[in-house]
Every structure is written in structure tokens, then in C-alpha cells.
Design a protein around this nucleic acid. Structure first.
Lengths: 222, 222
DNA sequence: ACCTGAACACCGTTCAAGT
DNA sequence: ACCTGAACACCGTTCAAGT
């Protein structure tokens, strides 16, 4: 992952959608969303920019394929659990970790890739059923959970964009804290109070805490 | 709002950041995110494209200013309620309705505008406190609520992009249903079951149902 | 069938020149 | 101080031409 370098001199095997998507994921992971251009991709694959269009309809198609690939891998890896509560936590964590590793997926998810969203919705919905929620409430419960997961995914993607520019965890934390405290303590008392907890707080744990609040609500309501 | 037309012949008053932001919001509302270019904006304002840069740093700055404007109006309009539970619902609905009216705000919110996010977080957090949540749990509760709201905002923005191309509600519903049922019923039983409810379901009510699940969870957990 | 790379239309941004 | 609009660098996409 580290030193394959920018340009590939080999280029022995033929182009394929899979190779193109893999190269796109590499660029997105390493240099961020803005760095993915057809010219950069063509250089990376040692081919002409027009050649990519033989395998991929357009940039949207490419981004959707890349998102699907990361997402379906994450879903396949998410350990199957026997209890629905644990299943939901495992699925949610699978999405969280995938977006943690590939932040651009978070920004891409709500745009095009219906397949990925539908799969998430299906798996969450199935576990909501297994939880014993009334049929009339299942749609709302699954929808709420999926939307929560997507919201966190967004925020993670945004944080990663920030982290891409700020190198090092301390510089990153400082940048975030500076933003949280940019306004008057008088006008933003809660934000200031919470800003002191930023240093020791863990995004992943906080995400799980949100899932648990949700599950508690689902159980108490249905 | 209807017939001011595309080009302004008058151009009597001077340019200002406020006028530029208002024009940008008009274009975004009417023609979508892709339609906002400095050239289109300059034409709309009957000026040169370079002139805009005297009042606005760049496109990101412009989008942030437009988002802030819509968002702060929405927050100001959100009726103040005496009971924290009702307050949270009012704030959440304010955000929902603002994004319903200006879908591009949903896509923009997680990108840059820290001020808008912080204001939302502050107001939600204040009401979480008023709800009597333990101090140690306040951060997680507020964060979960904000993330849920942002997730719904995303989905709304995505739906609106679809609606911009599909004219008419029936064509829109058909397009959505087609996407929900694009896969095998065998592999996606829950999605198929829920797809039958799409026609009579109301996004706004479903959003509120999610808030209520959350609040039930918060109350039962704290 | 698959690839090349110049060309096209369009974008955000800059800047010398105007008032 | 504020505005103009041509120019620049860059982008996604197309397509005649090659193999």
C-alpha cells in the first residue's frame, strides 16, 4: 500500500473495469476526492484518458462502482451475530469502519449508489424485524437507524477532509477545538462545555452510544 | 419569485455580498447545485464574473454564506417551546423544512459551514440538558440527535436531486419505487415489503417518528 | 474490440486595465 | 474602491484515428 508509487511502468495486463475501480480507490484513499481526475487515473494506469471510457460510462459511474465495492466488502465482513441487537451493532460498525478507512465513501453514499443504501436498509430492516418491532413501525425504525448511520458517515467524511490537510493528530485536534470555540462562550455555552471533552472522546464509541440510544428507544416504543 | 426572469436589466444599486448571496440562493433553488457558476451568477447580476470576487473569497465562501443564511433564518423561525421535548421537535422540524425548501443546503451542511452546525448543536444540546440528561451523557445524546438530523437532510437533498429531473409527483414516486424494487424480492424481502408503503408514507412524519424514537431512548437511558 | 491523445466545451480564479 | 472581461489552468467527455 505504501510504495507502489505514482506511475506504473509495467502495464502488462489489459485494462478492465475492476482494475480501473481499484486504481480509483487508491487515489481517493491517498489523495482525497479532488485528486481523482481522469487524467490522474490514466497516468496511474499508464493509458490514455479516453481509454477509461471504454470500461466506465462516466465519472459518476466510476464513483458509484468504487463506493459499491468498498461498501459490499464492508457488509460481507460484518460478522453475523445471533442476537439482533448485536447484529445491528455489527452492521453499523462495519459501515463506520469502512468510512473511517475510506472517508470519500461517506460523501458519496447519499449521492448515487442505491445498491449500497438498499443493502444497508435491507440488513438493518431484517434485524429490526427480528427485534420484534410491530410491522407498522418497522419502516420508521429502520429508516431512522439508516439515517443516523448516514449522518455519522457524513461527519466522518468531513473530519477526514480536515485531517487530510492537518497532518498529525494533535494539529487536527487543535484545528477542531479552534472551530468549536470560535464563538462566544456566552452565546454557545453547551458547545464550549463539550469542547473540553473533545480530546478524550472517541468517535467510534460515540457512534455506538448513538446506536444504543436508538435501540433503547425502539425497544421502549414497540 | 416566479417571473423576475433570468437577466436583470436594471442593475441600479451597487453589488454587495448580500445581493450576491441572495442571487446564488435563487439559482440554487431554481436550477440546482450544478447550475451555480460564477458566469451564470454574473449574468444574473448583470456584472462581470470577476466582480464577484471583490465581495466573496471564492465559491466555497459563497456556498457557506448561502448555507448560513438559509440555516440561520430557519433557526430563528423555529418557534420557541417551553417543554424541551417540544423544543427539540421544533428545532428539528425547522431544519427539515429549510432543507425541504432548499435541498442543496442538505448537501452543503456537512462540508464547510461550521457556524450552522455549531448553532444546531448548541440548541439541541441546550434542550438535551433541559431534558435532565446526566452531564456525562449529554455529549453523546446531542451528537446522536444532530447526526440523525444531518442524515435525513442528506437523504432529502438526494431525493430533491432526483425530483429536479423527474417532473411531477407520480413520475417521482415511480422512479423511487423502481429503484427500491430493482433487486430480487428473494434477496431483498424487507425492502420489497417496505416499498409498498412508499406511496402513502410522509417524509416529514417519518422524520418526526425518528426523533421520537430517539427521545424515547434518551429518556429510558438517562 | 480496445486503445490513443488531441480537441471541445466549460469551469473557478486571476489580473491588467478601466472608472 | 469597485468593476470589466480577457486569459489561464484545469476539468469531464468525445471522437477520428490507430492497432
Amino acid at each position: 500500500m505504501a510504495t507502489t508509487g505514482h506511475r506504473n511502468a509495467r502495464r502488462t495486463d489489459a485494462l478492465s473495469k475492476q482494475r480501473i475501480v481499484e486504481a480509483a480507490i487508491e487515489i481517493l484513499d491517498r489523495d482525497g476526492e479532488d485528486a481523482l481526475t481522469f487524467r490522474a487515473l490514466a497516468a496511474h494506469l499508464a493509458t490514455g484518458s479516453g481509454a477509461i471510457y471504454w470500461h466506465v460510462a462516466n465519472k459518476n459511474d466510476l464513483l458509484t462502482a468504487a463506493t459499491d465495492r468498498v461498501f459490499f466488502h464492508a457488509m460481507a465482513d460484518a460478522a453475523h451475530q445471533t442476537r439482533p441487537r448485536e447484529s445491528i451493532r455489527a452492521i453499523a460498525l462495519g459501515v463506520f469502519d469502512a468510512i473511517d478507512a475510506h472517508p470519500w465513501v461517506g460523501a458519496q453514499l447519499p449521492r448515487e449508489p442505491w445498491s449500497a443504501l438498499l443493502q444497508l436498509f435491507e440488513r438493518i430492516g431484517g434485524q429490526v424485524q427480528a427485534l420484534g418491532v410491530f410491522e407498522a413501525a418497522q419502516f420508521n425504525c429502520a429508516s431512522a437507524l439508516v439515517n443516523y448511520i448516514l449522518g455519522v458517515a457524513q461527519q466522518n467524511a468531513a473530519s477526514a477532509r480536515l485531517l487530510l490537510h492537518e497532518t498529525g493528530r494533535t494539529a487536527f485536534l487543535e484545528a477542531v477545538t479552534a472551530r468549536w470555540t470560535q464563538h462566544d462562550r456566552a452565546a454557545y455555552p453547551f458547545v464550549h462545555q463539550v469542547a473540553t471533552q473533545l480530546r478524550e472522546h472517541d468517535d467510534r464509541e460515540q457512534f455506538l452510544a448513538g446506536i444504543d440510544i436508538f435501540l433503547a428507544g425502539v425497544e421502549s416504543a414497540c
